[in-house]
Simulated scan of single mutants.
Amino acid sequence: MTTYAFPDDLLQAQRDWYTAYQQLAETENPSQTTVLRRTLQRLSVQITTHPYWASIPGRAPAARMALKQAVWEPDPEGARP
């Protein structure tokens, strides 16, 4: 299993993406839906265009999945992002 050293800003962007996605799933306010969709779009661009991906050519798909898993894993107190 390969271990990746993700930059903190990339990890935070992925955490923020999951948070916005969860909020979108739970909201019933149409104006909030628009804001959250724009937030998800902005974060998706930030994540996919991050310079980190250029540092691991050929391994980016596996690293992207590892990023998602690293952020999705529960913290020591059992909470997810």
Rank of each mutant, 00 (worst) to 15 (best):
Y52S: 07
V71Q: 13
Q23F: 13
D16S: 15
Q23T: 12
E73Y: 12
L24V: 03
V71N: 10
I56M: 08
I56N: 05
A60K: 14
Y52K: 09
H50Y: 13
Q41L: 01
T34F: 12
T49C: 06
R42F: 01
S44R: 05
R15M: 14
L43C: 03
T27R: 07
Q32V: 10
T49W: 11
R80S: 09
T27G: 03
E28N: 12
Y21M: 10
T19S: 10
D16L: 12
M65Q: 12
M65Y: 07
S55N: 08
Q32M: 07
R80V: 11
A5L: 10
G78V: 01
R37P: 03
P81D: 08
S44T: 05
M65N: 06
Q23R: 13
W17V: 09
L10S: 10
Q22F: 06
G58K: 01
S31F: 15
Q14D: 09
A70S: 14
W53Q: 12
E26K: 13
Q12W: 00
Q23I: 10
Q41T: 01
A62Q: 04
I47C: 03
L40A: 01
L40Y: 00
W72K: 14
S44L: 00
P30G: 01
R42L: 04
Q12R: 08
P57G: 05
A60S: 14
L11Q: 10
Q23M: 14
Q22A: 08
A54D: 07
Q14W: 14
L40P: 00
V35L: 00
R38I: 04
I56D: 03
R37V: 00
W53L: 09
P74T: 10
P61M: 05
D16K: 10
P51R: 07
A20E: 00
Y4I: 09
P30W: 00
L36M: 02
F6H: 07
R59E: 12
S31K: 15
P76K: 06
W72T: 13
V45D: 07
T33Y: 02
D8N: 13
L11I: 15
S31G: 09
M1Y: 06
A13E: 00
N29Q: 06
Y18N: 11
V71G: 06
Q12A: 04
W53V: 13
D16A: 14
P81G: 07
Q41P: 02
A60G: 10
Y21W: 03
P74I: 05
A13N: 02
T19W: 03
P7R: 15
L67R: 10
R37T: 04
N29W: 03
L36F: 05
T48I: 04
T2K: 12
L10N: 11
T48D: 13
P74R: 11
D8E: 14
T39R: 04
M1H: 09
A13H: 01
R80K: 13
L67G: 03
D16E: 15
A54K: 11
R59P: 05
A25W: 02
P61E: 04
P74L: 07
D8V: 15
Y21C: 08
R38K: 14
S31W: 15
Y21E: 09
A66F: 01
A20K: 01
A66R: 03
G78T: 02
A25P: 01
L67V: 12
T19Q: 12
M65P: 02
T19D: 10
Y4R: 09
V71L: 08
A20H: 01
D75N: 09
R59Q: 13
W72F: 15
T48R: 05
R15S: 15
A62P: 00
H50A: 09
Q14N: 14
Y21H: 08
S55K: 14
M1V: 13
R15Y: 15
Q14R: 15
